[in-house]
Design a protein around this nucleic acid. Structure first.
Lengths: 95, 95
DNA sequence: GTAAAATAGTTTATATAATAAACCTATTTA
DNA sequence: TAAATAGGTTTATTATATAAACTATTTTAC
């Protein structure tokens, strides 16, 4: 049993970690909300959301609000588990 | 005041973070000790130690033990400060 | 005594990743 | 109707982590 277990590279990323952190508390968030809260560019956010979705950590739903496109994200059980594991692992580095 | 302050990229790296974590508790450590504890390759460790040294986070002393080269590392005040700041910032992401 | 293996690293190459810049399409607003 | 805004996606660039290859010396085995 090693002292420093590997940190999930999908979560060990500033923007993706911030996104997950936000999604955990709100359980559903729009693209623009995430963009504002994280102060990221839309391009960067789009890419990182894709990665989280492909990993099965979040679900992304595309619809329309009125005539405008609307992207809504929510955390999935697998993502919650991964986040908790990540925090647990990380604590051993910083405590 | 943003919710997610940027994480010091020098510390937001698995191996460098592990090294700093070790150095904080022991205050002085040999290259081979760090290599074993972190289970890293010598090459990777060498590169990451260089970066920490160039940032002024650690001091590296090269000497000989008997006839063998010996590399000794210790944390510097600036490194300690940076580590504490990093942990503080990170907590807002994971708590 | 010398060939092979081990020690203690450094340097170089590669693959991945984060990020920003450029782009796209539709919709408002002036 | 031209310009600006909304809500993104795609592509390009830069940086980074990591491993592979290399160097130099020393010890061990034959």
């Amino acid at each position: 049993m090693s002292e420093f277990k590997p940190l999930d590279p999908l979560l060990h990323s500033q923007l993706r970690l911030a996104v997950m952190s936000l999604l955990i508390s709100v359980e559903e968030a729009e693209f623009t909300f995430l963009k504002e809260k994280t102060e990221s560019t839309a391009g960067n956010l789009s890419v990182q959301l894709d990665k989280l979705e492909k990993a099965g950590y979040i679900g992304i739903e595309k619809s329309f609000r009125g005539k405008r496109p609307l992207t809504t994200c929510r955390i999935l059980p697998e993502g919650l588990k991964a986040f908790e594991d990540y925090v647990e692992t990380l604590r051993k580095y910083i405590e």
